[in-house]
Write a protein that binds this DNA or RNA. Structure first.
Length: 644
DNA sequence: ATAGGGTTAG
């Protein structure tokens, strides 16, 4: 007689040893054949229900079996617990937990680990911790389950790292599961490097899970170089590792590298999935590559029910200035969440369609989706850009009451912008002093922007000094401040600012514009006449300026109040990068096509007038995206309403 | 039995 059957006899009851393992273990380990056909049928039924994750029926069948003195063992319970997790049956899970410990036999360690995992999956960390504390022996799985639980909680990441130390102290050796969990808990590049060292020491760096976690962790802390090192050391990788590195660069605003890696990935024969496409769309968004984005859209159609992917698509079209496409996708999405709505509201606002943004906000509330911090930001952004002072004040005042959202710095920034732009500079200053959180450079920049519009030199100087205090390397603000002093004939202060800039080694970022023609990106950098067709472009530009002057274009050379937010004055008025890019667009795109430009600096007043008049003269749309907002030029007007 | 990648702002 086998020892198993002997044990059954001693305990005086029958245990179910399931068919879950019958394909894995040999039949001699199974009690199954010793049962009568009625019991066998019950077990079959139970097994089927468990596989179907039909908890209700499985529990019922188990009760029937227990009445026939056939009891569950650890494997049985484990399967039941998996059922509970799948159907999120918390109460059932707790009942099974009690059951396990009230039985007359000792639960196997894997069963307790399953219970632990169940509490973690249900987010009941206290219960999990209590169970963990009671465990007679904690193996690497139990430790890893706890570490993974704490690492996933933004408030408890320190605890995950602490558990790693405790675990090692307890003599339990972390494995690749442990490391890929604990990497999520690293709260800075220092500790990350330490963990990386440990991983190398135990020789786990080539595990794909560990590798993708490392890449992700380095990317999250802005250390793309290290992420790329980890990636490049890879001999054999999988889709997720590729997705990690592509996503890492896409999120770190390095779309070029992300797209380059995407190309390599396809070259290496990998098939993309939703995650890849989401990151690639993100790269297109960052680079304003509408045509490439459209190509990716074709692949996205395969996954038309993927919400995250659709949201990324939506954002791509918004940020590439194609709101018709965005609206079309938005109306056809079968599921919309708060991010879909926020993306659309912000997209409308940034592109100058403020009324539409506010209408969407009303629609969103009607649809029952609760706005979040970012949604409200979009709403206030829309109000400030259109001068809807009362709407803005209403939404700002009611956000806490209606949605329980406390206004943050960004919200105050929008309000300062709104009030300041409406000429209520006193109220804007008052609001800054009333802020619950400390004003920062962004807040002061909003005030400075308003001062620029209303030519408030003194207040502008005050705000600019505040910005420099917060952000001592902001070249744009230095330039602006020095220009303000110069304009007010405060020469000494002007030269002091310029000296401070020189001493700190702060240099202006050169103006740069990009345009996509035939799937190729053409770059124009001010002062660097590096484009192969530059002489033709300049010749054409001169003719255009000549033509525009005939219809009333007067080049504007007053830059004093135009340097804002890192958008420094570009040196040569005539050859501003966006002018070159626009002219190149006219020369190389077919006549009906919209000209789309992306800029690294804010557009200057002169180029703005130039684009408006040119759009009218050429009867075509020009869209320029700067780091903050969008300008849709058409028929002599701009969607920004001449405020930016 | 325990582990990895994707969406809104700044």
């Amino acid at each position: 007689m086998s020892t198993a059957l002997l044990r059954m006899g001693i305990r005086g009851r029958r245990l179910i040893q399931f068919r879950f393992c019958s394909s894995l273990t040999t039949r001699q380990n199974s009690y199954y054949e010793h049962y009568d056909s009625g019991t066998r049928n019950l077990i079959d039924e139970f097994t089927t229900y468990c596989y179907q994750r039909n908890l209700e029926r499985a529990m019922k069948t188990l009760n029937v079996m227990q009445r026939g003195k056939v009891f569950a063992d650890s494997i049985t319970y484990s399967e039941l617990i998996k059922c509970c997790i799948a159907s999120r049956a918390i109460a059932h899970g707790k009942r099974i937990h009690k059951h396990v410990f009230s039985g007359g036999y000792e639960p196997k360690s894997f069963l307790i680990n399953n219970l632990l995992n169940m509490y973690v999956k249900f987010g009941l960390l206290d219960e999990a911790q209590a169970l963990f504390d009671e465990m007679p022996e904690r193996n690497v799985v139990a430790w890893t389950t706890m570490i993974s639980a704490y690492a996933a909680d933004s408030e408890l990441k320190d605890k995950a790292l602490e558990f790693l130390t405790l675990m090692v102290r307890d003599g339990v050796i972390p494995n690749m599961y442990t490391f890929s969990s604990v990497l999520r808990a690293c709260q800075g590049p220092g500790i990350l490097r330490q963990i990386h060292c440990s991983i190398i020491k135990v020789g786990l760096e080539s595990d794909v899970y560990v590798r993708s976690s490392l890449i992700d962790a380095y990317s999250r802390w802005g250390e793309s170089d290290n992420a790329l090192c980890v990636f490049n050391e890879m001999v054999t990788g999988d889709l997720v590792v590729w997705n990690s590195i592509i996503g890492g660069f896409a999120q770190n605003c390095d779309g070029d590298t992300a797209l380059c890696l995407y190309k390599q990935m396809k070259g290496a024969g990998f098939v993309t999935d939703q995650s890849t496409l989401t990151s690639v769309l993100g790269a297109c968004t960052g680079l304003a590559l509408l045509e490439l984005g459209r190509q990716v859209h074709v692949h996205v159609l395969k996954y038309d029910h993927d919400l995250i992917l659709n949201n990324a698509l939506l954002d791509m079209y918004c940020k590439c200035g194609s709101l018709d496409d965005a609206s079309c996708i938005f109306t056809h999405m079968d599921e919309k969440d708060v991010i879909s709505w926020s993306t659309m509201i912000m997209g409308m606002a940034q592109n100058g369609f403020s009324r539409k943004a506010l209408d969407l906000f009303e629609e969103m509330k009607d649809s029952g989706i609760k706005p979040n911090y970012i949604t409200i930001l979009g709403v206030l952004f829309a109000c400030s850009h259109a001068g809807f002072v009362e709407d803005g004040q209403y939404h700002f005042r009611s956000m806490k009451k209606l949605f329980g959202i406390n206004p943050g710095r960004e919200h105050y920034g929008c309000m300062v912008d709104l009030l300041g732009r409406a000429g209520k500079l006193d109220e804007a200053v008052k609001l800054i002093h009333e802020m619950e959180c400390e004003p920062d450079a962004v807040t002061w920049r909003a005030l400075l922007g308003a001062c620029r519009v209303h030519r408030e030199m003194d207040l502008a100087a005050y705000a600019a000094n505040k910005i420099i205090k917060h952000d001592p390397y902001d070249a744009g603000t230095y330039t602006l401040l020095s220009n303000i002093y110069a304009k007010s004939q405060r020469w000494q202060e002007a030269s002091m600012v310029r000296n401070a800039m020189k001493n700190k080694g702060i240099k202006k970022e050169p103006g740069c514009s990009w345009i996509e023609v035939n799937k190729c990106i053409h770059t124009f950098i001010v002062g660097e006449n590096s484009h192969p067709q530059i002489s033709n472009i300049i010749r054409e530009l001169k003719q255009i300026i000549w033509g525009l002057k005939e219809v009333g274009y007067v080049p504007d050379t007053d830059f004093v109040m135009q340097d804002l937010e890192g958008e420094q004055m570009e040196d040569s008025l005539q050859y501003h990068s966006e002018k070159l890019a626009i002219v190149f667009g006219i020369m190389s795109l077919s006549s009906g096509q919209t000209i789309r430009i992306r800029k690294n600096l804010r557009i200057c007043g002169d180029c703005h007038v130039f684009a408006k008049l040119l759009a009218k003269m050429e009867s075509r749309s020009i869209v320029i995206r700067d780091p903050i907002r969008y300008h849709h030029f058409q028929d002599g007007f701009c969607s920004c309403g001449d405020y930016w």
